Measured scan of single mutants.
Amino acid sequence: MQRVNMIMAESPGLITICLLGYLLSAECTVFLDHENANKILNRPKRYNSGKLEEFVQGNLERECMEEKCSFEEAREVFENTERTTEFWKQYVDGDQCESNPCLNGGSCKDDINSYECWCPFGFEGKNCELDVTCNIKNGRCEQFCKNSADNKVVCSCTEGYRLAENQKSCEPAVPFPCGRVSVSQTSKLTRAETVFPDVDYVNSTEAETILDNITQSTQSFNDFTRVVGGEDAKPGQFPWQVVLNGKVDAFCGGSIVNEKWIVTAAHCVETGVKITVVAGEHNIEETEHTEQKRNVIRIIPHHNYNAAINKYNHDIALLELDEPLVLNSYVTPICIADKEYTNIFLKFGSGYVSGWGRVFHKGRSALVLQYLRVPLVDRATCLRSTKFTIYNNMFCAGFHEGGRDSCQGDSGGPHVTEVEGTSFLTGIISWGEECAMKGKYGIYTKVSRYVNWIKEKTKLT
């Protein structure tokens, strides 16, 4: 034993070699072989497995989906700052455009905790909710729209109204504003409101030439003092309507412009014939205590009207009353817009006519005020429907199939267009061939041609 100890002390290297040989010859039971080890760690190889990531292109799944990435790591994937920024906006807080917040056709661009709407022409605001041009839906104005110097929408209202708090709607500024039905039992019968379409306001006024200088022999019209197929109006439903009495009662109609003036057809009036105007009328054979009678003290036909040349060209006249009318729910003026808007309103496509005229061709006159909704007829169809001249200051309205029309005794009465609950004068009943005849239409004086003249002559002093 002493000898062994001496050998170990003198030859430590020998001992180490012996131990190493023993270990190498022993069977290893701690580690699995290569094949079995792979069965336990069965993990798919990654895209760049075996390579240094710093030297390969980034992978979106590896960089940002398996674990949260930084902007720089995302930049490695896209290799483009702009594309990385677009991805980053949604990656950080989701897609803010998912709810489609942009209105009126706006395009949404996502941002971090926010979004941006790219608005089409005519709109602005956070969600493109603000109209900035009158060309689109009248700028959301209830009545009139004008573009300011910086191309912003400025709404306005006709006389007797003021802008509401929203700067879009119009509200009454006087007790009985024009064009409004205020009798409670008839307010439910107000005709369907007309909503502004998209309009090209630059070209809204037709490029028409008034044929002022045409000389033409007097034409022989049949029954051209021209509501057939209409309905009984309720008291106060058309408070701007008046009836004219002269040699015979209810020979023509008219509309209240203001307390002192009536507008009617020029062919209705004769110099030297006494005319009485009755406002607030409903049943011409009954006294309903809503009527107001006034005498006409002055007749002003349009300066281009000449019955000797043509009885229905420039067929418009103004009547001055001896005493002002007292405005109330049964006696209310009709609204008159400017030339541009009167023309736009007419193009809405349908209007209402009213009167006490004959209820059928050569038949009896109506006792109760009649009204009828009539569609506008395109000019080409209008011209083809008659052998008589249709001037540019006239328009056609009615039904091709016949059966409904204005008729004798309705002449001078109103053709009105309702705009968001307020009625505007767009025409004056003038003439036609018979009444409600198939293929024939009622012919009306186009008020847009005469609004400046009306307003100039009827100013209240």
Rank of each mutant, 00 (worst) to 15 (best):
R379Y: 14
E259F: 03
R449T: 12
P333D: 01
A192N: 12
K387D: 13
R358L: 07
V331H: 01
G230A: 14
L14A: 06
S187C: 05
S423K: 12
D198Q: 13
L23W: 08
Q237T: 08
Q185A: 05
F399N: 13
T417L: 01
R298P: 00
L20N: 03
E35N: 13
G229F: 14
S255M: 03
V183H: 06
E79D: 15
Y371A: 14
F71L: 15
K39A: 12
L369I: 07
Q185Y: 12
M394P: 01
T381Y: 13
T271K: 09
W240S: 00
M65A: 12
P172F: 04
S411W: 14
V56K: 05
D405G: 14
S169R: 11
E418H: 10
H303S: 08
Q237N: 08
Y305P: 02
E61L: 11
S354V: 11
L372R: 14
I454S: 00
D322R: 03
C134I: 02
Y201R: 12
I309F: 10
K247H: 09
T332W: 02
G351L: 01
C335K: 00
E86M: 15
N80W: 03
F251D: 03
Q185S: 12
M437E: 12
Q167L: 13
L325S: 01
I316H: 01
K446V: 02
E340G: 08
K188V: 08
A307R: 12
Y47F: 13
R62M: 04
D232S: 11
E67F: 03
C170E: 00
T16E: 04
F176Q: 06
V153S: 06
P172Q: 07
G21N: 08
R298H: 05
L346A: 03
D322K: 04
C170R: 01
I17W: 12
Y391G: 08
W261Q: 00
R62S: 04
C382F: 03
Y305G: 02
E54V: 06
Q219G: 13
E116H: 06
N166A: 02
R373P: 11
T133Y: 04
E208D: 12
E288C: 04
E27I: 02
H415K: 01
K362G: 13
S354Y: 08
T276A: 08
P120N: 08
S182I: 08
N48Q: 10
A233K: 05
V368E: 10
F238L: 06
G105H: 06
T271W: 07
I336C: 02
G421A: 07
G179Y: 01
Q241F: 11
K387C: 03
K339R: 15
C108R: 01
C407S: 04
K146G: 07
L32C: 05
K68V: 10
A149V: 12
K438F: 10
V30D: 15
T290F: 07
E285K: 12
L327Y: 08
L369A: 14
L163T: 05
E418V: 09
D410Q: 14
A9K: 08
H415T: 00
E320K: 03
S148L: 08
D110A: 08
T16N: 04
D33M: 11
C134H: 02
G351T: 02
E418Q: 15
N343Y: 03
L244V: 07
C18I: 14
G412K: 03
